[in-house]
Every structure is written in C-alpha cells, then in structure tokens.
C-alpha cells in the first residue's frame, strides 16, 4: 500500500513540485558539479567529434595525421559524403536511398511488433497471476542471454523451409511485406526477452487500484490493457522503443542474414559495410556513412526524449 500512496501523491501534485524542486536543487548543486558534467560531456563528445572531422577529411590525411591536425590545416571535403550518398553500386543507381528506405521499412515494424507483443505479455505476467506465470517470467528473463548467433541457422531453416506458415498465423500481414517479414520476425523474437523484462518491471508497478477499478467496472483484460495499461506505460514504452529502434537500425548481422543482403530489402549497415571496400577499411567513407546513419536515430531520440523526462505524468499534462 505504501507504494500506491506514493504513486497517488506523485500523480496529484505536479503543480507544487516546481518551486520546491528548485529549493532542493539549490541545496544539492555546486559549481563543482557543473564542471564535472562539462568535463564528462567533453570527454564523451570528443571521440564523436573525431568521427565527424574524419568524415570530412580527404583520404590521405586520414591515414597520415591525427584528426585534430585538421584544426591546424583545415582541409575539408564533402567527397566522402558524396561517395556514401550517391555513388551507387552498378545494380543500384540511387546510392544509399533504397537502403535507407529498407532500413526504415525494417526498423519501424521491428520496433512496434516487439513492443506491442511484449507489453501484452508483461501485462499478463504482472497482473493476471496463474500457476506457472512466475516461471514463465523467469524463463523470459533468463533467455536474454542466449546469443542470437545461435538462433540464426534454425530460424533461417524455419523461414526458408516451409514452416513459414507457422509464422503467418502469428503475423497475418506477412504476405504483404514480402521479404521484410523474416527480418521483422527475427528482430521481434530476439527483442522479446529484454522487452518483456523491462516492460514488466514498469507495468507491475502501475497503481493497482486503477487497473482493478476498471476490471470491476466490467472492462475485460483486453480493455484494461488497451485503455489503462498502455497509456500509463507510455514512458516505458517510449524508452524501450528508442533502444529497440537503435538496435535494429544499427544491426548488421540479423539484417544481412535474413534479407540475404539484396538491394531490394537489405538495410543500410549492410550497404555501408559493402562500401568499405574489399581490401580495406575506407575509413573516410565509413565515418561519413556512420554519420549519415546516426542522423535518424538522433531525430528519434530527440522527439521521444520528453517521454523519458516526464515520467508518470506523461499523459496528464497534455491529455
């Protein structure tokens, strides 16, 4: 009960928190902490700055002098970006664009599917206790550690060998997506343990009375899940969405294995890897590619960031 009252207070008094928080803030802060954060931020950013600078330097310079040499001898080129974005292979004339589209087409469903399915499972495990539900939850948790490399071959066999129909029953829209479906399903599977674990931790702590009141009012579990649990869990869903998005977006192994790497369906990392040349790391191209691929995740992060910060109050302010 203690927890419930805590949540209650949290939900009920947002207006009061602002002035007191500053008070506490003052009590805690010091110029030293500002310096510390600044220092960490710099240390954290400098390597990425190196990446950016490297991506703008000509090939020879990259191998011969440190990137900071750029400040002494500024010598910029956009050629690397040009190579990455527009120099298509023979089979693909649009450079990176088709792969970017593939990446989006893979990442969006591969983020939504696991979140929806995992939050459903997390709700059951947290709020509909039944014999064995704890065991199922702990199995979910433990399976996080199974390396996905171990599942590549059996899954490929499944997708290519006709048991495909088995997946059709899970995702009836498979036929429409064509060759993306195996990647979606694979990503969804691999995301499941962590997603269920994280979302369960959050959903289990939702206020009991909100859920029970709806139940007693005659709402079915499905209704409760949709109308009460999902909105309440928005911050957790948003944070998991970011991590899943980033993971899928940057993934090479699953994308390459389950699309076969063909331009029709392969994601951007497989293209970037291919751009790097047979006999060498063309770092200047890889760095440019890395920056191109960072842009979209950053946009996603910035647009979802407020959900992190808002915590449980998420919906109440906007409505």
């Amino acid at each position: 009960m203690a927890m419930l009252t805590r949540t209650e207070r949290k939900r009920s008094e947002p207006a009061r928190t602002a002035p007191t928080r500053t008070g506490v803030r003052r009590a805690l802060s010091s110029p030293l902490s500002t310096v510390a954060v600044l220092l960490v931020t710099v240390v954290w950013t400098v390597p990425s700055l190196g990446l950016l600078v490297t991506s703008l330097r000509p090939e020879q310079d990259v191998a011969q002098t440190g990137w900071w040499d750029f400040f002494a001898h500024p010598h910029l080129t956009l050629a690397n970006y040009h190579d990455v974005l527009f120099n298509g292979g023979f089979g693909v004339s649009d450079g990176l664009m088709p792969y970017l589209v593939n990446s989006l087409a893979i990442t969006v469903p591969a983020t939504i599917f696991p979140i929806v399915l995992a939050s459903m499972a997390a709700y059951v495990l947290a709020w509909i206790p039944f014999k064995g539900s704890d065991t199922i939850f702990f199995v979910f948790f433990a399976l996080q550690v199974v390396p996905l490399q171990m599942a590549l071959v059996p899954l490929l066999q499944l997708f290519s060998g006709g048991a495909h129909i088995g997946s059709l029953t899970i995702f009836p829209a498979v036929g429409m997506g064509g060759s993306y479906a195996p990647v979606w399903i694979a990503h969804t599977m691999f995301a499941m343990p962590l997603a269920v674990f994280l979302l369960h931790n959050f959903i289990a702590q939702l206020p009991r009375d909100l859920i029970e009141a709806a139940r007693v009012d005659g709402a079915s579990h499905f209704r409760v899940f949709r109308s009460v649990v999902l909105p309440l869990a928005t911050p957790a869903l948003a944070s998991f969405a970011i991590f899943q998005f980033l993971w899928v977006w940057n993934d090479l192994l699953v994308g390459l294995t389950f699309t076969g790497g063909a331009p029709e369906s392969a994601p951007m990392p497989s293209r970037l890897a291919q751009l790097s040349g047979s006999f060498g790391d063309h770092w200047e191209i890889l760095t440019a590619g890395a920056f191109v691929s960072v842009v979209i995740p950053l946009v996603v992060f910035f647009s979802l960031q407020r959900y992190f910060v808002r915590g449980l109050l998420a919906g109440s302010v906007k409505g």
Partner: peptide
C-alpha cells in the same frame, strides 16, 4: 470471474490522469 453489478472505490482515487 468479475462479479456483475459491483463498483469499487479505493483510497487512491483510481482516475486516469490523461482523461478529463
């Protein structure tokens, strides 16, 4: 299963924060 014709009132007032 859930009993028909029952309503509940808790100490915490079970209102959904994002609804009017």
């Amino acid at each position: 299963g859930i009993t028909d014709g029952v309503s509940f009132m808790f100490q915490a007032d079970a209102l959904l924060p994002w609804k009017t």
